[in-house]
Deep mutational scan, measured.
Amino acid sequence: DDWEIHFNNITIRLHGVSEEQIEELKELIKNGAHEEELRKWAEEVNR
């Protein structure tokens, strides 16, 4: 699925990401992940 997530003036566009991966991302954000951590997560997902 395609997703677009907005938070802290950042837009993250995701393509072909599962519901499970979105839940992981929500947890990262909820736990106060920094932009660098989110980038690493996105790189892993996009492999």
Rank of each mutant, 00 (worst) to 15 (best):
D1Q: 15
D1L: 15
D1P: 10
D1V: 15
D1S: 14
D1C: 15
D2N: 12
D2I: 15
D2W: 14
D2R: 11
D2Q: 11
W3T: 04
W3D: 02
E4P: 01
E4A: 07
I5C: 12
I5M: 08
I5E: 02
H6G: 03
H6V: 13
H6Q: 10
F7D: 01
F7R: 01
N8H: 09
N8R: 13
N8F: 07
N8A: 11
N9K: 07
N9S: 11
N9F: 15
I10Q: 05
I10H: 07
I10E: 04
T11V: 10
T11Y: 12
T11E: 03
T11R: 06
I12A: 05
I12T: 03
I12S: 05
I12R: 05
I12L: 13
I12N: 03
I12P: 02
I12Y: 04
R13T: 05
R13C: 09
R13Q: 05
R13I: 09
L14E: 00
L14H: 01
L14N: 01
L14M: 06
L14W: 03
L14Q: 01
L14P: 01
H15S: 10
H15W: 15
H15A: 06
H15D: 05
G16Q: 12
G16D: 08
G16I: 10
G16R: 15
G16V: 06
G16Y: 14
V17T: 02
V17P: 13
V17K: 02
V17C: 05
V17A: 13
S18P: 04
E19N: 11
E19K: 14
E19H: 12
E19C: 13
E20M: 09
E20W: 14
E20Q: 14
E20T: 09
E20P: 04
Q21H: 08
Q21E: 05
I22D: 00
I22H: 02
I22M: 09
E23L: 12
E23V: 08
E23I: 09
E23G: 08
E24I: 09
E24V: 10
E24N: 06
E24Q: 10
E24W: 08
L25T: 00
L25F: 13
L25C: 02
L25R: 00
L25W: 04
K26D: 02
K26C: 13
K26Q: 06
K26M: 14
K26T: 05
K26Y: 15
E27P: 00
E27A: 13
L28E: 00
L28S: 00
L28F: 03
I29C: 10
I29F: 07
I29T: 01
I29D: 00
K30Q: 07
K30D: 03
K30P: 00
K30L: 09
N31V: 04
N31S: 11
G32C: 03
G32M: 03
G32L: 02
A33C: 09
A33Y: 04
H34Q: 13
H34T: 15
H34S: 15
H34W: 04
E35H: 06
E35P: 10
E35M: 07
E35Q: 04
E35R: 04
E35T: 06
E36Q: 08
E36D: 13
E36W: 14
E37P: 01
E37C: 05
L38D: 00
L38N: 00
L38W: 03
L38K: 00
R39A: 08
R39K: 09
R39G: 02
R39C: 09
R39Q: 10
R39I: 13
R39D: 03
R39E: 05
K40D: 04
K40S: 06
W41Q: 01
W41C: 02
W41V: 02
W41M: 02
A42N: 01
A42I: 15
A42M: 12
A42E: 06
A42G: 03
E43L: 08
E44D: 08
E44K: 14
E44W: 07
E44I: 08
E44V: 06
V45G: 01
V45K: 08
V45W: 15
V45A: 15
N46Y: 13
N46C: 14
R47Y: 12
R47H: 13
